[in-house]
Design a protein around this nucleic acid. Structure first.
Length: 557
RNA sequence: UGUCCGAUGGUGUAAUGGUAACACUGCAGAUUUUGGUUCUGCCUUUCUAGGUUCGAAUCCUAGUCGGACAACCA
């Protein structure tokens, strides 16, 4: 029995607020992606948190696109983000956009100008940066800081009217250029961008900065708990300053540590690079840590939610072993995936005492974990079979219990066979294995009394369907590519993809449609790819099975 | 040489002043017509030094180490 985890710190905060009757006990969270890239496994932590927390306390969650930078944002991303959230199994209460609030935000800015809490600055980006100081030295006031309210009002409205060029003017909050918190040194509120916005088109040429949009958007929606990652912690005083000066609904921000995972990268910037520079085959390449990549790889929403649950949430930096994600998908797929036999690296096996030309149809359970075994499927059997090349050894060492001359194994769902001989070609490669079978050892009514240690998967040659199989490995060779010397791309694993163009599959497997998931017996979990064509499916390896034999061999090596 | 945040097994996460635990990993074994699954057992933990207290992972102080902050990005 698994002991239940204690509440995490966010649950504690919310539970206290609810108990104290804050906001009438109402809980409303939001998930605020910027539509400038695809969602990744790190976002799924945030999604599970935001939606999970709200529902745990009887609340709901808004989806809000933080679309305040028209030059990097696009509807393509909006669509993929919505698809991914739905796929993960979450439903948002409202679909909002920060751009919905542009008019309101503009009025908020005017209000701050009138209170002499904001001013238009004509300084260049370089001048502003220079006057900002550094974390250890205070900044200097801008020469434009003391403009009159009237002048600021006039200038700001002319900024909106498009009378100035990009970079010519900005609107800044008037706070404190000497603050130890850089974000309080008269932060920018608005900048001029003569750019087309994916939703507002050409209506605006000034756009609010994150700090002037996010908190107010939360406030407008009356978000009670605004949950974000740790790097926004230094923005919190500013988040509260705007809300306080505007006197609007007091949403509160809480931070947690973002997810990091071994053998991958988790920043949109880096992922975009991998896509643009063609190191991978798009955002949904099965090696990508994106939601769409994981989906194509064969991960299930259940497995990702289980992962989010298991990693927990705290405020300390962390790097999760990707092995935990793999554990979660195995856990799920073991219970749900249809079993099938596919030989990835085929070698011919001939049963000498099986009648020439004879075939038969055997029954195989579809899922030994299911109550009803998932039903049964037909598996053709015959005199000539394909078996896995690695399941044969010319000489067997101590702990090896697969096929080798003189040894017996069971063919899964079929008969026990004994290896009699084998032939090799000029290059010393095994070309054919010859065996005899025990007719009375048939699965289901074995009267042979023989016990064998090993069981092999196989496919009857006369009914085998060639299929393409893509074996994926980790995208990077090192645990934390971002912290290594030099460029992270130097650490890409050159063997992250191995394509097998003609593996041999049993007929049922060859019928797979895109998205169908299987456990290929003894080989791992696989998912039919979207590139599958009728009659010639393509399978992506989601994850291998745990392989204690391979581990044993590695130790011996 | 600033401000803020953090530090519990190999990796994560609990323990909320009262016996340091759970998961993953690893190791050993049992079962097995998947060297899978399942089951059993084991290894390994409170950054350091002071202080408060009957009692400290927890509170205080100092130090050490790690992270964040100087985009007209979010």
């Amino acid at each position: 029995m698994e002991k239940e985890k204690g509440p995490n710190f966010l649950e504690e905060i919310i539970a206290e607020d609810v108990a104290a009757g804050k906001h009438g006990g109402r809980v409303l969270t939001r998930f605020p992606p910027e539509p400038n890239g695809y969602l990744h496994i790190g976002h799924s932590k945030s999604i599970c948190l935001n939606f999970g927390l709200a529902s745990k306390f009887g609340g709901v969650t808004n989806l809000r696109f933080d679309d305040t930078n028209p030059v990097t944002e696009d509807t393509e991303y909006v669509e993929s983000i919505k698809e991914d959230i739905k796929w993960l199994g979450f439903n948002w209460a409202n679909e909002f956009y920060a751009s919905d609030y542009f008019e309101q935000l503009y009025e908020f800015a005017v209000e701050l100008i009138k209170k002499d809490l904001a001013y238009v600055d004509d300084s260049s980006a370089e001048e502003i940066a220079a006057a900002k100081g550094t974390p250890t030295t205070p900044g200097k006031d801008s020469p434009f800081r003391s403009r009159s309210v009237e002048e600021n009002l006039d200038l700001f409205s002319r900024m909106r009217n498009g009378e100035f060029k990009e970079g010519e003017k900005v609107l800044r909050a008037k706070i404190d250029m000497a603050s130890p918190n850089m974000h309080l040194r008269d932060p920018l509120m608005y900048r001029i961008k003569h750019a087309h916005h994916h939703r507002t088109g050409d209506k605006w040429c000034i756009y609010p900065m994150y700090d002037f949009a996010h908190g107010q958007s939360d406030s407008i929606e009356k978000i009670t708990h605004s949950i974000c990652t740790l790097e926004f912690e230094v923005h919190k005083p500013l988040y509260e300053w705007f809300i306080d000066k505007l006197g609007i609904f007091p949403s509160k921000q809480y931070e947690f540590a973002r997810l990091n995972m071994t053998y991958t990268v988790m920043s949109k910037r880096k992922l975009l690079q991998l896509v643009n520079e063609k190191h991978v085959d798009g955002w949904d390449d099965p090696r990508m840590p994106t939601i769409s990549g994981l989906r194509r790889r064969g991960y299930t929403p259940e497995s990702i939610r289980m992962f989010a649950e298991k990693i927990g949430v705290a405020r300390r930096e962390n790097i999760i072993d990707v092995g935990l994600l793999e554990f979660c998908i195995r856990e799920d797929l073991n219970k749900t995936a249809m079993r099938g036999m596919v030989v990835l690296d085929p070698v011919k096996l001939v049963i000498e005492n099986y009648p020439e030309g004879q075939t038969e149809v055997l029954k195989g359970e579809n899922n030994p974990e299911a109550e009803d075994k998932g039903g049964y499927r037909d598996i053709p059997f015959g005199k000539e079979l394909w078996i896995e090349r690695e399941d044969f050894r010319e000489v067997a060492e101590k702990k090896y219990f697969r096929l080798a001359p003189g040894l017996m194994v069971r063919l899964k769902h079929a008969y026990i066979i004994k290896c009699e001989s084998f032939t090799k070609d000029a290059s010393d490669r095994v070309t054919e294995i010859r065996c005899t079978y025990v007719p009375e050892s048939k699965s289901g009514n074995d009267t042979s009394g023989i016990n064998v240690k090993g069981t092999l998967h196989w496919v009857a040659a006369h009914a085998a369907a060639p299929v393409e199989v893509r074996l994926y490995d980790r995208l990077f060779r090192v645990e934390d590519p971002s912290s290594e010397e030099g460029d992270f791309k130097d650490y890409i694993n050159p063997e992250s993809l191995h394509v097998i163009s003609s593996a041999m599959a049993e007929p049922t497997v060859a019928l797979a449609k895109a998205g169908d998931k299987f456990q290929f017996l003894r080989k791992g979990y696989f998912c039919a790819d979207k590139n599958s064509v009728s009659g010639k499916p393509v399978f992506n390896r989601t994850v291998t099975l745990k392989d204690t034999w391979a581990k044993e061999e590695r130790k011996g090596a």
